[in-house]
Design a protein around this nucleic acid. Structure first.
Length: 530
RNA sequence: GGUGACGUAGCCAAGUGGUUAGGCAACGGAUUGCAAAUCCGUGAACGCGGGUUCGAUUCCCGCCGUCACCUCCA
């Protein structure tokens, strides 16, 4: 069993070979905590969490670091705008980020170093670069001299001389090369600062990763990850600094694809983001509330980490539907806590060649550059096998399904409830009350064999994203996602139509009942001539 | 302009020189007052043009199209 990894630096599939057998160290670039969490912040953690889980399942010990950039120009600006202390801003968004990681089942991270906790080490690191003359002091800070670093540009495939032609690189005054980047920025009045031999200031963006990775993982480690957009300049600069420092740095580089919409990347500067309705779709809070955290995680793992993912709501919803099906198949089994017996799923005796084949293919997919999409397909196949079985063999198949899924961080206790409660209506008494009223009316209509009314009510509920399940014990309902956020309006519109029909045939008992019950629920109806 | 990637059925998405990927949707049947849910089952694909080959969606060449990075970004 060899795990092959696509290395962005060599652009090749290369074997993962831990320096110390059995131990893997990985570093992932984390967020700058200055605003609400969006899906881009969460993709890397979820994808790399699945990778870490696989390494652990393969018997490796994993140290997994995601940094928190808690000092930065954007945090300072945000604090100035809101009149808050910059530390409060950073702390608030750090907490929010952690909350989402927990909801999405990101459990393998061992360290979350904060930039501000490592400033002295950064100063020391920069001093070494200055001493080696690959860094120099300029008017507004200390800069790295990319011209002095052989191989600069090897990750992103660009050449130093060609970058001069790039109109987008704006040369600050006094730099040796326009693309030289700041290691240390001198503080302007009123800005937070730390002491340094060159003057009070704060670290530049890139230096923290080189320093914190070294602090926690050592001068050389196995895996370094991040979003594809960080290749240049961020990771290029990390490599330059660390190699200039004399560190081996990362063996293998992994870059995840970026979130898209309509085939285009979602970026801060994207003009579409000016539309709040559009921007909302990528807000972490909205996604988790609308589809449920397990669905978001599942959606991310259906493809391959290196490919971009289109967050059209209908795509996420389709993923959710498939996940619900798997969870329902598993039944009460998913409520069992994760334990050592489940974790040993790869070594378990199966007594079924078919199941063994699927397990092997699952493993082969994960060993091949962490192909979670192909692995998920095996999950569905195992489900299909289980479907054709009964009794103990079925149990065996379902346990295999559950425990393989759990390697990917799926099928956690409470997931089904989390999906059912998604839609933003859980706990909304008005929605629940209106749905309850609609079901009562429908029950009455059915009893009276008034199927036209009964069906109209059901259609109205369906249209509002409420699934109706008729059973021997009466009808129950389930709230699906409500991406447009207008569920209540739709429900009320449906009931109003029913009420108008009742008034038409002078069934004022029903009509008044609808009006009064809605009023109790806080929805006032006003009759007009129309 | 430079660098990198991608184009697979209605949508999403793996993968392979000849053997079913998978999901969602759709369709047919069972069930149902009718539906939904559920169960059983079905069809449909490899951007275009050349080449290599017994055979290419898979390899090679060309073309077209899309995207990302070169600016803040995860």
């Amino acid at each position: 069993m060899t795990i092959q990894v696509h290395d962005s630096l060599s652009r090749q599939l290369r074997p993962l070979q831990p320096a110390e057998p059995g131990r893997v160290r990985m570093y992932l670039c984390g967020p700058t905590v200055y605003s609400d969490c969006h899906i881009g912040h969460l993709m890397g953690p979820v994808l790399f969490d699945a990778i870490a889980r696989w390494l652990i399942a393969r018997g490796l010990q994993v140290r997994f670091v995601i940094n928190i950039t808690d000092i930065d120009d954007k945090i300072i600006r945000r604090a100035q705008e809101s009149g808050e202390d910059w530390r409060a801003v950073a702390e608030r968004y750090t907490e929010q980020y952690f909350e989402f990681l927990a909801q999405l089942g990101v459990t393998t991270v061992t360290d979350h170093p904060r930039c501000t906790d490592h400033v002295p080490q950064m100063v020391e690191f920069i001093a070494d670069l200055v001493a080696k003359d690959v860094a120099y002091v300029a008017a507004d800070g200390v800069y790295f001299d990319i011209g002095r670093q052989p191989g600069y540009g090897k990750l992103s495939g660009r050449r130093v001389d060609e970058m001069l032609a790039g109109a987008r690189i704006e040369a600050a005054v006094g730099l040796r090369h326009p693309a030289d980047f700041a290691l240390w920025k001198f503080a302007k009045p009123g800005e937070p600062s730390w002491p340094s031999p060159w003057g009070a200031g704060r670290p530049g963006w890139h230096i923290e990763c080189s320093v914190m990775a070294r602090e926690l993982l050592g001068p050389r480690f196995e895996l370094h990850g991040g979003g594809d957009d960080l290749k240049f300049p961020h990771h290029e600069n990390e490599i330059a600094q660390s190699e200039a420092h004399g560190d081996g740095f990362a063996d293998l580089w992994l870059h995840n694809g970026l979130a898209q919409s309509g085939g285009r990347k979602i970026a801060k500067s994207d003009p579409r983001m000016k539309d709040p309705e559009f921007a909302r779709q990528f807000n972490a809070r909205w996604l988790v509330d609308t589809f449920g955290a397990p669905a978001v995680r599942f959606f991310l793992l259906r493809g391959h980490y290196r490919r971009p993912i289109d967050f059209d709501p209908s795509n996420v919803e389709a993923a959710r539907t498939g996940l619900v099906r798997l969870l329902e198949r598993l039944g009460p089994m998913i409520e069992a806590p994760e334990d050592a017996a489940g974790a040993a799923v790869l070594d378990r005796a199966l007594s079924s060649a078919e199941l063994e084949r699927h397990r092997e293919r699952f493993c082969a997919a994960m060993d091949d550059d962490f192909n979670t999409g192909a692995a998920v397909a095996e999950l569905f196949s195992i489900q299909a096998v289980a479907q054709g079985l009964t009794g103990a063999p079925r149990e065996t198949a379902l346990r295999l399904l559950r425990d393989l899924g759990r390697i990917l961080g799926l099928f956690r206790p409470g997931d089904l409830a989390a999906l059912r409660n998604a839609g933003g209506a859980a706990g909304d008494a008005r929605v629940e009350g209106v749905v309850g009223l609609a079901l009562e009316l429908r029950q009455a209509a059915r009893a009276a064999k008034d199927f036209a009314t009964a069906d109209a009510l059901r259609d109205g509920l369906t249209n509002a994203g409420v699934a109706v399940h008729d059973g021997p014990a009466g009808a129950t309902f389930e709230l699906g996602p409500d991406p447009a956020g207008d569920r209540l309006d739709r429900l009320v519109a449906a009931l109003t139509a029913i009420r108008n029909a009742a008034r038409q045939r002078r069934d004022f008992a029903t009509s008044d009942r609808i009006r009064d019950r809605l009023a109790e629920l806080g929805v006032e109806l006003r009759d007009g001539p129309a």
